[in-house]
Design a binder for these strands. Structure first.
Length: 630
RNA sequence: GGCCUCGUAGCUCAGUUGUAUAGAGCAUCAGAUUCCGGUUCUGAGUGUCGCGGGUUAGAGUCCCGCCGAGGUCACCA
């Protein structure tokens, strides 16, 4: 049941609110009438939940369908007769809403009066942000953490999914009337950074992004790989030595992994880092800055941004205080070796380490510290972590710990858990060189878009090289983003690098194309001096296709709400696709500019404009731009 | 082994809080439009919705069991 919220609509004038009330919602009016009808016909009041209205299937006449099965126990009649009773009642009680009805088995199909649809369209046209809930100072404050990269390698396809989902989810939450703070926690400390640093010192010969011409993040990634190669060679050699001395193979490898000089050096470096050794710290800052410059480029290309960035090098110490506090209060306990643990067996989970025996932090400690800082900085009502589903357990534990430590949003924190991106032969593995690099992927998509539309672009008069490039960027990224966002976030998804992403069918460019085509029509209409401002004519006969288009437009509100409730941006993608398909059918069957009846023409222009607006806003929620021409 | 997630057409995926004959795209074939714009539209065919029970007037959807895939259960992050 869809009920439009009209309270607190700050941007609507009083007059507009009244207008909205009058067309409030066709479904709402029918629901009320049905409730009254049931009471009058069968002498019983029923809960509103029982009134189940759905869109009528295209093969039947009508716009809305009432499911009558729930009323049978009250009416004590056959489904057909009950539907007949109710239909008759509705036509007599609210003729301005329901003009006709028909009965198919237990389904009452209702034909809504055309004037209702025109009023609805008018309403949609008047609201710049139709379907969006307003935001006020009192709106809940939602913080969304996403991206969260390590600073030892460039971003890959998995990060792309994370970033796109995080950005889209933030937009969806905003559209649902929340104040949103987008945040990023950068994992800038730890053994993995030291590995890159060490390898650069040993094999780098002072190479920099400037001297190498590489993006900073890629340069660091190169040395991370170099470390790994040298380290594995050492392990292999050392293990062979141990086995020659009579040790078992497995044991030898394990020992070699611990004893290899490189890993020992890396550990030494980490200790120095923790001790604030000036040299190590200086190198660390320098190399991290290279990485950040690289990340910024990728983020910019993806069109994502953050309001506040946290660094684990700042937060990991904060967590220790919180753990000590929990220890004082008896939530945690210390083992004889000095390590600190949380006993979660009451909650059906295991015991969890919070501080090592040497007093240093682990992952969980850092997340607690980050939470502390965040709560100091913002009065958060809800916290959403966009992190892959491999960390489900971690967040289950984190939620319990934060709750125990007194974070009011800890218990209800949302782990927006998304699935992995798989390749045709399984997961991405850096060791096998199957990692799909984010920058490469973006460049390839834009290149494809440019190639695919090269000959078509020529048809667009007066398009400069720069404009053509901008269109290719929008379309290429649109294809990539839509491809990823249209699938349910929590499912694993498949990406085949061999096959380029489609530009036809259920794709971003298909939707963008429809938008561009509508804009073209509107430009031509404007050139002819036709505008759609003012009141729409109500005495026009609407075709079925036009009605179902208006009905689809109206569904945008519900799609946004659904996406927000389920934390599921793919709702929006699917909605946009359905809307566009509906419009294309309309476009195929009816002409806008060549329509001779002026009233119909104006109405169709208004309809087209409304569709273009909803496409733009809908794709906008997904972070997808639309071109005026393509 | 414990816990979590997923299983829908050849492939990639939809399927709102249960409801009519389970849908799109890609690919294949046939047609329409050639115009407001050439990424458009229409039609054709494939389904044990993993399997088996249960609840219900009604189950792809909810419950239980099994099978299969993935994840996780580190003094890694």
């Amino acid at each position: 049941m869809v009920v439009k919220k009209i309270k607190n609509r700050t941007f609507a004038s009083a007059k507009k609110q009244k207008q909205e009330l009058s067309i409030m919602s066709i479904e709402k009016k029918i629901t009320e009438a049905v409730l009254a009808g049931v009471e009058k016909l069968y002498g019983q009041t029923v809960p509103e939940k029982m009134v189940q209205l759905q869109e009528t299937r295209p093969e039947f006449e009508g716009n809305l369908t009432l499911v009558v099965f729930p009323f049978l126990k009250i009416s004590r009649k056959k489904p057909e007769d009950t539907a007949q009773d109710l239909g008759q009642y509705l036509v007599e009680a609210v003729p301005e809403v329901v003009s006709r009805f028909s009965v198919v088995k237990g389904f009452l199909n209702l034909v809504v009066a055309p004037a209702q649809w025109v009023a609805m369209l008018q309403d949609i046209c008047q609201q710049e942000k139709f379907g969006f809930q307003p935001i006020t100072d009192k709106s809940p404050l939602v913080m969304i953490e996403y991206s969260s990269p390590n600073t030892n390698k460039p971003l890959h396809l998995g990060h792309v999914r994370n970033n796109l989902l995080g950005w889209a989810l933030a937009n969806v939450m905003e559209a649902n009337g929340n104040r949103v703070v987008k945040t990023n926690i950068v994992n800038d400390r730890g053994i993995h950074i030291c590995k890159s640093m060490l390898a650069w010192l040993k094999y780098g010969n002072g190479e920099t992004p400037e001297t190498s011409g590489m993006k900073g993040d890629h340069l660091i990634g190169k040395y991370y790989v170099a470390f790994d190669q040298h380290y594995r060679a050492e392990v292999k050699q050392l293990a062979a030595q141990y086995t020659a001395e009579g040790m078992g193979e497995e044991e030898a490898t394990e020992k070699a992994k611990q004893e290899a000089p490189l890993i020992k050096e890396a550990h030494d470096m980490l200790v120095k880092w923790e001790q604030n050794d000036p040299e190590v710290r200086a190198l660390w800052s320098r190399m991290n800055d290279w990485v950040y410059a690289g990340f910024d480029e990728t983020y910019k290309a993806l069109g994502v941004a953050f309001d506040k960035i946290y660094y684990e090098s700042n937060t990991y110490l904060e967590g220790k205080d919180k753990v000590e506090e929990g220890l004082q209060k008896g939530f945690f306990y210390r083992r004889p070796d000095g390590s600190v643990w949380a006993d979660l067996t009451q909650e059906g989970l295991d015991e969890k380490l919070l501080l090592r025996s040497d007093g240093t932090s682990v992952y969980m400690t850092q997340d607690i510290g980050t939470a502390k800082l965040r709560f100091q900085d913002f009065p958060i009502d809800k916290m959403i972590y966009v992190v892959g589903n491999e960390q489900n357990y971690h967040f289950q534990v984190l939620s319990i710990l934060l709750d125990k430590l007194g974070f009011k949003w800890g218990k209800d924190l949302v782990h927006f858990s998304y699935g992995m991106v798989e390749l045709p032969n399984g997961k991405m593995k850096s060791r096998e060189g199957t990692v799909v690099d984010a920058d490469d992927l973006i460049a390839a998509m834009i290149g494809d878009a440019r190639e695919m539309s090269a000959d078509k672009m020529k048809k667009l008069d007066g398009l400069t090289e720069e404009e053509a490039g901008e269109i290719a960027r929008i379309v290429g990224l649109g294809a990539l983003k839509y491809f990823i966002l249209k699938v349910d976030a929590r499912k694993n998804m498949l990406f085949n690098p061999e096959e380029s992403i489609d530009f036809n069918g259920n794709t971003g460019p298909f939707i963008q194309y429809t938008y561009a085509r509508i804009r073209s029509i509107l430009r031509k209409a404007a050139a002819e001096g036709i505008t759609v401002s003012g009141t729409l004519p109500t005495d026009v006969e609407l075709a079925d296709k036009e009605i179902s288009l208006i009905q689809h437009l109206n569904g945008f509100t519900a799609a946004i709400r659904q996406a927000g409730m389920d934390y599921n941006p793919s709702c929006i993608a699917n909605y946009c696709y359905e809307l566009v398909k509906e419009y294309n059918q309309f476009y195929h069957d009816f002409s806008v500019l060549k329509e001779e009846d002026e009233k119909k023409k104006v109405l169709r222009l208004a309809l087209s404009e409304a569709v273009s607006k909803v496409i733009k806003n809908g794709l906008g929620l997904l972070g997808i731009e639309v071109p005026e021409r393509m």
